[in-house]
Design a protein around this nucleic acid. Structure first.
Lengths: 232, 232
DNA sequence: GTCTATATTAAGATAGAC
DNA sequence: GTCTATCTTAATATAGAC
């Protein structure tokens, strides 16, 4: 008699699920490399060997954790961007506000989901093994293209190279601040007596990023250096 | 007969120096935790045990590597900031330009020094052990205070809390982009056929950060949330 | 699918001869 | 100060009984 499907249908978390949920929390807390399979399995209350049984190896587990978030985030972002691009005029601020809602919706998926996802994203980008970054860019190229299209509509004066760099500045600011959000929120709470949740943080980020990405391109300095370099 | 001082005077790198230089390069390449003492000693051509002999333990070695950069960077930054603060009017852009030169000067200290230092700084901030962050803030509080003073002179409308967050956005953008500068520069070179060195990168960062930090404070959104939260 | 037990590898650190 | 040799710990991963 097979009862396995009953367990899955009834939502009772099986071993595979427990591993995924626990790994996600621990990865977000300490990073991929700093989290051992032992910690994961201990906290999940499952056997050490089950990770390898269900996911093959650790790298595969990491992909599974990140993938679950991307599947929720990217389609939601795509909807927002399509709606935005249907407009006649696009303000830079609205482009970043389009990211805010899909990101916040991850908090519905799981407690603290937005922060966890961003931290995973940051680690994916900067971690030793570059395979995660490749995985994301290739899987969601179309959504990323929509995003840059919206930015360029908001500020057509941006040349592609400037845009390239500014979007990476943006990514850096987001990743860093979300990764440190817990520690930073505590400091802010001590010093300014104001509670800062994810939404407050994003509302602070939006004007900063919109101003930064939308800033007039200053060719004074860079052009001078470039010409000097070309004459060498 | 003592010849040790001859070695040191003549600039012949002794074991302790070799370890420091090699560790610095490897830390920047792969991070603190990802770099083993075995890698360091092998590449430096010294014995494994010598790390513990000269530096006690690994954590101490990390501090020594970062400390050498801070000693060069912080006083230079202080000079620039003092000069800036002597002016009547301060533009936001000039505050960030004040950081540019001290940072670039690290390239004179060692090839690629600016990028290495920033990467170390980023890792110091986000690494598991929070001891490095504490070390920096306490040791160089005065310089950091000068920096925030300059920012506030450039935009007196900034409330302390907004400034706090925006400076962390700034730090995130810098750290991330410098840490990924090698990979990103290669992509940019492929796609836009332009070489990007450290100075170009900083010249691109300055307008972005100046606009972001200097942006008008938007209390619309945050205030609404705050009030809602307070009424709960 | 899950368990115990173990193989394998690699890390940081130290003892003690030279 | 430097070396060899070794200790201790902890990681990923697998074999094989149940």
């Amino acid at each position: 008699m097979r009862f396995n499907w009953v367990n899955e249908m009834a939502g009772r978390r099986n071993t595979k699920q427990k591993i995924l949920d626990t790994a996600e929390a621990l990865f977000a807390e300490s990073g991929f490399n700093e989290t051992s399979l032992r910690e994961i399995t201990t906290r999940a209350g499952v056997n050490l060997a089950s990770v390898n049984y269900h996911y093959g190896d650790k790298r595969n587990l990491v992909r599974a954790v990140l993938g679950r978030y991307l599947e929720a985030f990217m389609p939601a972002l795509e909807v927002e961007l399509q709606r935005l691009l249907a407009r006649d005029e696009i303000e830079m601020r609205d482009v970043f506000l389009s990211v805010k809602q899909p990101l916040l919706s991850l908090n519905g998926l799981r407690a603290n989901g937005a922060a966890i996802f961003t931290q995973l994203l940051g680690r994916a980008y900067s971690d030793v093994q570059g395979h995660l970054r490749w995985f994301i860019v290739n899987q969601y190229q179309t959504v990323l293209d929509l995003f840059t299209a919206a930015i360029r509509r908001a500020n057509p004066a941006l040349d592609p190279e400037t845009l390239f760099w500014r979007l990476h500045f943006t990514l850096g600011a987001c990743v860093f601040v979300m990764a440190s959000s817990k520690a930073l929120s505590e400091i802010a709470e001590n010093d300014y007596s104001t509670v800062t949740n994810t939404e407050d943080l994003l509302d602070r980020l939006v004007p900063f990023l919109a101003a930064g990405v939308g800033a007039e391109v200053d060719l004074e300095l860079t052009e001078i250096h470039r010409r000097l370099a070309n004459h060498q």
